[in-house]
Simulated assay, not measured.
Amino acid sequence: MKTFEETELCFPQLLNSSCRKTMRPYTFSILIYITLSSISLLTVTLNLLVIISISHFKKLHTPTNLLLLSLAVSDCLVGLLILFQIIIIDGCWFLGEFMCSMYFLLDYIITSASLGTMVLISIDRYVAICYPLHYSTKVTPKRTKACVYLCWICSSVFHCLVLKENLVQPGRYNSCYGECVVVVGHAFGVADLLLSFIGPVIVIVVLYLNIFVVAMTQARALRSHIAALTHEGSVSTNVKKSEMKAVRTISVVIIVFLICLCPYFGVTLSGQDAMLSASSVAFVMCLFYLNSCLNPLIYALFYPWFRKSVKQIVTLKILKSGSCDTNIMYTE
Results as ranks from 00 to 15, higher is better:
2 K>V: 15
9 L>Q: 12
13 Q>N: 15
20 R>M: 10
41 L>H: 03
42 L>A: 14
44 V>Q: 05
50 V>F: 01
56 H>R: 05
79 G>M: 04
81 L>W: 08
90 D>S: 09
98 F>S: 12
105 L>H: 00
107 D>V: 08
110 I>D: 02
110 I>S: 01
117 T>D: 07
118 M>K: 11
120 L>A: 13
121 I>D: 06
133 L>N: 15
133 L>W: 09
140 T>Y: 06
144 T>L: 09
144 T>D: 06
145 K>N: 13
145 K>D: 05
151 C>Q: 11
153 I>M: 02
158 F>E: 01
166 N>M: 00
166 N>S: 02
170 P>V: 02
170 P>H: 01
175 S>K: 11
180 C>V: 03
181 V>R: 07
185 G>N: 12
185 G>E: 11
202 I>E: 02
218 Q>L: 09
219 A>N: 10
220 R>F: 08
223 R>T: 09
224 S>T: 10
229 L>I: 10
233 G>W: 05
243 E>K: 07
245 K>W: 08
245 K>G: 15
246 A>I: 11
246 A>V: 12
260 C>M: 05
268 T>N: 15
271 G>R: 14
281 V>L: 02
281 V>K: 04
282 A>K: 05
291 N>Y: 11
292 S>T: 04
296 P>R: 00
309 S>Q: 00
310 V>G: 00
326 T>S: 09
326 T>K: 06
327 N>G: 07
328 I>R: 02
329 M>P: 05
331 T>R: 11
